[in-house]
Write a protein that binds this DNA or RNA. Sequence first.
DNA 1: AGGATTTCTGACTTTCTAATCAGAAACACA
DNA 2: TGTGTTTCTGATTAGAAAGTCAGAAATCCT
Lengths: 215, 215
Amino acid sequence: MLEAVAAPPTRKGPQTAGRIREAALELFSRLGFERVTMGEIAAAAGVSQATLHYHFDDKACLWRAAMLQLGAVIAEEERLLEAMADAPPEVQLRMAMKLFLRISWKHPALGRIVALEGMAGGERLAWLDAHLTGPRNRRLAEIAQAAIDSGALKPFPAPMLVITLQAASAGVINLAPMMGVSFGMDPSAPEARQAHEQMILDAILGGLLTHPTTP
Amino acid sequence: MLEAVAAPPTRKGPQTAGRIREAALELFSRLGFERVTMGEIAAAAGVSQATLHYHFDDKACLWRAAMLQLGAVIAEEERLLEAMADAPPEVQLRMAMKLFLRISWKHPALGRIVALEGMAGGERLAWLDAHLTGPRNRRLAEIAQAAIDSGALKPFPAPMLVITLQAASAGVINLAPMMGVSFGMDPSAPEARQAHEQMILDAILGGLLTHPTTP
DNA sequence: AGGATTTCTGACTTTCTAATCAGAAACACA
DNA sequence: TGTGTTTCTGATTAGAAAGTCAGAAATCCT
């Protein structure tokens, strides 16, 4: 059985495969592809190393399967966005950022993977773009462009706006280890998270709008 | 000779060691520590693999030596900042961001390294914090705090402000490969860079100020 | 229960990588 | 020129990691 994403749970195999994917996602997203060994993933999932190769052909295949776990997350994001396709684009954009923040805190792997592979380039980035991040990025850019055209958003290149907003949002989340080391601060504490959301949505997104609505 | 950072240039060795450090910095910063092999660095520097071990004890040692190349960059940043220690903190902060942008475009390795190791944690992050990024981060946080205390900056946690500003600035630079793949856009083109600077300094930093000075 | 199927594992092979070392080549200097 | 020093390299070693495979263990079905 090779990288079956969804399978009937009557048998026991898919459950194990799921545990493996979860462990792999956590490790891959924190450390990147080659910093993680199959042995570590096996240990984290509580199975032997050979079991990994029973469920997934090779390491790259396991990586892709782990990434597809994130597909559901992104799909949820997309669905909520589509539900408000009729709202003014700047409202959609604000909601998209709010969703992105919420989801990034819940699934920090997403932003970390984008940061890791988005810097390195290569075939894994191409795969991510085709299967996960590309469509969402381009949809967000369209919304941003619409907001620019309607005069609500300052006229910066839409791709740049989208990437910068995501980078600004994910920065504190991704770099939590560094914030701990440099400042002794844990940004995932509830009060920090609230300040973070306010900072991103009101101050930073606000600064990009022509007429910020929130004080 | 083990990780001599500065040496009399009369002999030929230090020159080779410098080439090795440059090649190592480029590769390490783009791909991270373990994604890079000594063979690749040797090939990029045009020497044999054994030469790397003649100049540097081991891979970790070479990594640190490569990172210290960035020390000069950061020192320059610091120096220019100290020259305006008497200016109002929000002016210092704006200048710091302008410097950071300029330096990040010139030496993209800095932001990439921070992103890579700042996510992963571990001893390399601790080393970076102690030798390169920690002092600068804490100084910037002090400036931000002063700007908050003077009422010029909105009162978000200073460490969060500093990290977010840097993440927002470096996002487009670090993720240039992803912008190429997702949007077919090269953010390092001159006009894109100018838009980027304006976006960061005026819109984003502006949104964090209580009374933005630039329209 | 008993056979068939799925799931899993220990032991092994192959490949890749960091690190070592003896000695060659380049160089400085008398 | 000859000698000693610095710099560099090819060949090799040791170890780690991915991937393979025969067969054990668990599970399912009748």
